[in-house]
Nucleic acid binder design. Structure first.
Length: 594
RNA sequence: GGCCCCAUCGUCUAGUCAGGUCAGGACGCCAGGUUUUCAUCCUGGAAACCGGGGUUCGAAUCCCCGUGGGGUCACCA
């Protein structure tokens, strides 16, 4: 099995989304499992939509996930930090050890043209001269008759010598493949045999008017030239496969093993796509029932004109740039659904956890642990060892963020605290660099500064880790420790519940405990908790009687990390200051109570 | 609409290929418990074989029909 070669072949028209990431993961896992090669090829034959930035983004996404490719475009990971918590560092990925590159299709045009010439020569392909507009009109007409349009081979009515002459003479044209008049049966590792009748497939285009090959042509030529043995791709490609098989036969190529992966959907069952960010944001803005000036403010936040914004709002299909969407979401204080790998990195998911979860969408190891539970949690090494095509599922699956979140939280919470700290630091460093959190930037900056100090960082990590599911929300658990003593906002409900009620009241307890604080040494979590517990026991009080008033005084709310950690993070001086301020502000007798 | 694919708890799934265990697990949900709040953690619970026909002693599992969902119908990939 050493000769297995898989490939992931994205088109660089946007960020890598989770569906693509799962395909890449499976391609990678199969190659690793079989001791074969995993190669990466960039399908940039759409001149209008391909961008260099997208290519880099995809390479970085894959590297972040920990999917190293043996052949393909090079990416030097020693020179850059890839989004802070990436799985691979200090290696150069890609290269061309077998000499089968280049791995950008736009640089391989001569190969496609050679194959196309051969097909034309053998009359298995032919030039066609209809304009896109003509074809569109025919399509519309067919639609009006409630028929499915298929190319009518009008170009074949032109005598062969003439159409070749017109082509050589430079007349604008496309080249079409003469689809054989027979049903084609595709063997698929997931779906079994799929039969497609001849009348379902028309003479598809091999080379576009601009001289670039279509996906079909480039893909078939390259898979052959690069020795690809296994093609794993989304099920949306299933109908393309008979075309590819027909082309392979015409050119005398091998047919690789195919495995079509089920689609990944949104929780509502619709296909997952970038458009969902637009959808989420549109829905939110509409729900605000925003007036004209409000819309103006939103448009400004997104860096777009009000006209653009209104048009976008009115058109279901309209999309705004990722940057504009992100800015508006921050401004409105909402979180857009994570769709791209980059989104998950930014939210603070761990790459190996994402891979773990993604692997479970459409694949299952079919193993039980000692307690008879399904094996669900595993790392990359497990996939290297156990991945197999036989256990791929057929059913489209829905992307369940709750489960991913649970997996991520569990992983984060089980890490050694120093490991958690360094991962948090790396993630935060990138977040700060990207100015992702402009709505609260100074606080993030402050956290960043404090996290850099080892002792302080560790204390913050100890407080945040047990409550953190993704790094994005970690800061909320230690927010109180980052604000100034006189900036604490006391929550009305908390004041009433734990400071005013009870006998003795919370305020009374605070007054008494205040002196205790001075004497605690060292001012560290265990000592603090020990002192307060002993103090409570002496008085026959439950721990909560003292803990909750202290929480309110220190954080303004009834929720915080462990009491010792909470006080220790603020420091002895800070604690005293906050208690004093709380006594002053919350005592009804002091007229500052409300 | 044509064609193709799919169908087990709310979600991801094990069990289906080689018919025979109260249909198992995970996330979520609900109820208790531990705990100084929250988060954890522990215990328990509700929750599914899409429907109808066959084949069979026996069907989640095999066959047919229906229904539902998805994909696809480009000079995008």
């Amino acid at each position: 099995m050493g000769d297995v070669i898989t490939r992931f072949a994205p088109s660089p028209t946007g960020d890598l989304h989770v569906g693509g990431a799962r395909t890449a993961l499976f391609c990678w896992a199969l190659a690793r499992r079989c001791g074969g090669r995993f190669l990466l090829r960039i399908e940039d034959t759409d001149q209008a939509r391909s961008t260099e930035g997208a290519t880099r983004g995809i390479l970085e996404s894959l590297a972040w996930l920990g999917l190293d490719w043996d052949e393909g475009p090079e990416l030097d990971l020693s020179k850059q930090t890839v989004w802070g918590t990436g799985a691979l560092t200090d290696v150069t990925l890609g290269g061309d050890p077998r000499g089968v590159g280049p791995f950008f299709q736009a640089r391989r045009l001569d190969r496609y043209n050679e194959a196309i010439e051969e097909l034309i020569e053998r009359d298995l392909a032919y030039p066609a001269f209809e304009s896109p507009e003509e074809l569109e009109a025919k399509r519309k007409a067919a639609q009006a008759r409630k028929e499915t349009y298929r190319y009518d081979r009008a170009a074949l009515a032109i005598p062969r010598a003439e159409r070749l002459a017109r082509m050589r003479g430079g007349e604008p044209h496309v080249v079409r493949f003469r689809m054989p008049d027979e049903a084609i049966v595709v063997r698929d590792e997931v779906l079994g045999e799929v039969r497609v009748e001849a009348d379902q497939l028309d003479d598809f285009v091999l080379r576009k008017r601009d001289g670039y090959p279509t996906y079909h042509m480039a893909c078939v030529v390259d898979d052959e030239g690069m020795g690809v043995t296994h093609v794993l791709r989304g099920q949306e490609h299933l109908i393309n496969t008979p075309r590819h098989v027909a082309l392979q036969r015409a050119l005398g190529y091998r047919t690789p093993v195919y495995a079509h992966l089920p689609i990944i959907c949104n929780p509502d069952g619709s296909k997952m796509s970038k458009r969902d960010k637009d959808k989420t944001l549109k829905g939110h803005i509409r729900s605000l029932g925003a007036g004209a000036d409000h819309l103006g403010a939103i448009a400004e936040a997104g860096g777009v004109s009000v006209e653009e914004l209104e048009h976008w709002l009115g058109d279901k299909r309209a999309q705004l740039s990722p940057e504009a969407l992100a800015k508006m979401a921050i401004d409105l204080g909402i979180v857009l659904p994570e769709i791209n790998v980059r989104d998950f990195a930014r939210s603070g998911y761990l790459p190996e956890v994402l891979c773990n979860y993604l692997a479970l969408l459409g694949w299952n190891p079919g193993l039980k642990d000692e307690e008879g539970r399904d094996v669900e949690r595993f790392g990359m090494d497990f996939l290297r060892e156990h991945f197999s095509l036989e256990r791929l599922g057929k059913k489209a699956s829905r992307f369940d963020r709750e489960k991913l979140l649970a997996f991520n939280g569990e992983t984060l919470q089980r890490m050694p605290v120093d490991h958690f700290l360094s991962a948090w630091r790396r993630w935060l460093g990138v977040a700060i660099e990207n100015r992702r959190f402009v709505h609260d930037f100074s606080l993030w900056r402050r956290l960043w500064e404090e996290l850099k100090e080892d002792a302080r960082g560790l204390a913050l990590a100890r407080a945040a880790q047990p409550r953190t599911k993704i790094f994005l929300d970690a800061i909320e658990h230690v927010r109180f420790a980052l604000v100034d003593d006189d900036a604490v906002v006391f929550d009305e409900k908390a004041i009433r519940k734990v400071l005013h009620k009870g006998e003795p009241s919370g305020l009374e307890i605070l007054r008494q405990v205040r002196d205790l604080i001075e004497g605690i040494d060292p001012f560290e979590p265990e000592a603090i908790e020990g002192a307060i517990r002993a103090w409570c026991e002496e008085r026959g009080l439950k721990m909560g009687k003292a803990a909750q008033p202290l929480r309110v005084a220190i954080t303004g709310t009834t929720v915080s990390p462990g009491l010792g950690e909470t006080l220790a993070l603020v420091g002895k001086k800070g604690v005293s200051a906050r208690i004093d301020r709380c006594l002053l502000a919350c005592d009804p007798g002091n007229n500052g109570g409300d």
